[in-house]
Amino acid sequence: MSRPTPRALRTTANTVGVIAFLVAAFPVYWMVNSSFLARNEIRSPTPTWVPFGGDLDNYRTVFGTDQFLDALKVSLMVTGLTIAVALLFAFVAAVAVSRFRFRGRLSFVVTLLVIQMIPVEGLFISQYKMLEAMDLLNTVVGLTLVYVAGVLPFTIWTLRGFVAGVPYELEEAAMMDGCSRPQAFFRVTLPLLAPGLVATGVFGFIQAWNEFTLALVVMTREDQRTLPLWLSTFTDVNRGTDWGGIMAGSTLIAVPVIIFFLVVQGRMVSGLTSGAVKG
């Protein structure tokens, strides 16, 4: 990038850049802005562009509704369980794939990539029928089951790289110094894998926390809704929609994701390009 950019090109690029920033960021700004506004400011012919004199009433309303608290509870349970199970299963599988040579290893890895290409929308009908037969509709366990299968391929794929990145010689050296194999593994290898576990755990969080389609299919009962479902039923065509409340709810859901997203951003870019993520 040493070559100087011509003036005209730079001006054009900068202008496009500012426009792109405005288009990309405005909806996010508008969400936060509207979440502070009172009903009469929201329902006014002229929009309020900056939330001067705004307050937290919308947030108080959201936290005051049982539906939100129920949905928060369900979302936290499903997300937590999904991360825990997926990390455990993916971790042992990643160890197998990157630490051992065995027949079927390559086909397993290729199968993971192929599974990534299957659209959920092409399978949810039979997943619904299966969970119905197992009596797992409207249960945290049922939704977790399909979520785990959704995030497993990417998690195994990514952890595989991390495990392979820890030289086996380190473990051998520890064993030479008198550690048993499990000791060597837990004291030497596992700590080195912490960043990988955090990155894939965060990925699992974002997926499970945001997911809408399968939640809509599996959680048909109102008291079993996840947060995205709760948010989507907030809009009401017939009674005037409480946009301030919805924006407060949206902000509450978005903030943890945005924070976590910034944590793993680099990994998302490289992981996605290796073709190993569902959107």
């Binding site: 909806p27 969400m31 509207s34 948010l231």
Partner: peptide, 26 residues
């Protein structure tokens, strides 16, 4: 400007899909 663009894009990318749908509807 580049930093600005990247910040904006990152925000849009990180938005949960349902949250961004409610904002766009609004």
């Amino acid at each position: 400007v580049r930093l600005l663009v990247q910040t904006g894009l990152l925000l849009a990318w990180a938005m949960p899909v349902v949250a961004s749908l409610t904002v766009w509807q609004w």
